[in-house]
């Protein structure tokens, strides 16, 4: 009987395993393999075992500049989304008293997630552009004489767009962690003489740890893997780790693009393992 059960279990998980194997494990493995191949004009991929692609990339100052720029964006977006995600969740969980209202407001924040990122990205143009709403408004009020140029196609607009697109990924896991906190715990802390800030710092924040870690994982990987936002919203002025890959792909230089992908993958996986060291995600999810 138990053998039959375990066979059924295997069968239930088999389709998932198959898809993950064919469309994740094999492709990523092949990216690693191709990264050691040689690139030849017109021919494209030439099987080989060379470190040339890695050597080219790592000795090129542009690569370092691009990764540094990505890291800068990642840190800025991480801090902003963390602050926003924490306080917005705190508001919904501990300040909104009616559960239905809280769920309604939570859904209001999540709905944009199910719409197109590209559309949401370009929708900042009429707001931030030279003739955009912000510039028009500021000129009307008389705060500025001529339109601000740094609002659109700048680091500023890139960060704004990232925050707009990715805050949700931080907010949902934090909300999930906070919603599980027993409110009696907070009252006990206050009865024991803690201030309200003390409660937030010593009770709410530690108990939201899992959510914060998961949210950080999402935000870091999304920003580091992005190439659409940084390309469109910086107007080509800023690059990211993926910009190099993008260029190589346009010249069909798959080996170097693959080597770049492997470097990015290693960095992302290192960050992810660091986060998984801190928390046991699976246990937290099933709890």
């Amino acid at each position: 009987m138990s053998e039959r059960r375990s066979f059924i279990t295997q069968l239930q998980v088999a389709p998932l395993t198959l898809v993950l194997f064919l469309f994740f494990v094999v492709p990523v493995a092949l990216v690693v393999i191709v990264s050691f191949f040689r690139y030849q004009m017109l021919v494209g991929l030439v099987p080989d075992f060379t470190f040339k692609n890695y050597y080219d990339l790592l000795t090129n100052p542009t690569t370092w500049a691009l990764y540094l720029s990505t890291l800068k964006f990642t840190l800025m977006v991480l801090v902003i989304t963390l602050v926003l995600g924490f306080w917005l969740s705190y508001f919904l969980v501990f300040h909104v008293r009616n559960l239905v209202v809280a769920i309604g407001l939570f859904l209001l924040c999540t709905i944009p997630f199910w719409t197109s990122n590209i559309i949401r990205m370009i929708s900042w143009r009429p707001i931030l552009g030279r003739e955009g709403l912000v510039n028009q408004g500021l000129q009307e009020v008389g705060l500025i004489d001529k339109p601000l140029d740094w609002l659109l196609f700048s680091d500023f607009s890139v960060v704004i767009t990232y925050v707009h697109l990715f805050t949700l990924f931080m907010m949902v896991p934090i909300f999930n962690s906070m919603a599980r906190i027993d409110k009696a715990l907070l009252e006990a802390a206050i009865d024991a003489g803690a201030t309200r800030w003390g409660v937030i710092w010593n009770v709410v924040l530690p108990l939201s740890k899992t959510g914060i870690a998961l949210g950080a994982l999402f935000v870091v990987t999304l920003v580091m893997g992005d190439f659409a936002v940084v390309k469109v919203m910086s107007g080509g002025l800023s690059g990211s780790a993926t910009s190099g890959m993008f260029n190589d792909l346009q010249f069909l230089n798959y080996p170097r693009a693959a080597a770049n992908a492997v470097i990015l993958l290693i960095i992302v996986m290192l960050i992810a393992t660091g986060i998984f060291r801190l928390i046991d995600v699976r246990k937290e999810l099933v709890r």
């Binding site: 469309f23 994740f24 492709p27 990523v28 990216v31 990987t221 580091m224 893997g225 190439f227 993926t242 890959m245 993008f246 792909l249 798959y254 693009a257 693959a258 992908a261 990015l264 993958l265 992302v268």
Partner: peptide
């Protein structure tokens, strides 16, 4: 995994 990496 970054979407672009998977795409490649």
């Amino acid at each position: 995994v970054p979407g672009l990496v998977l795409s490649i």
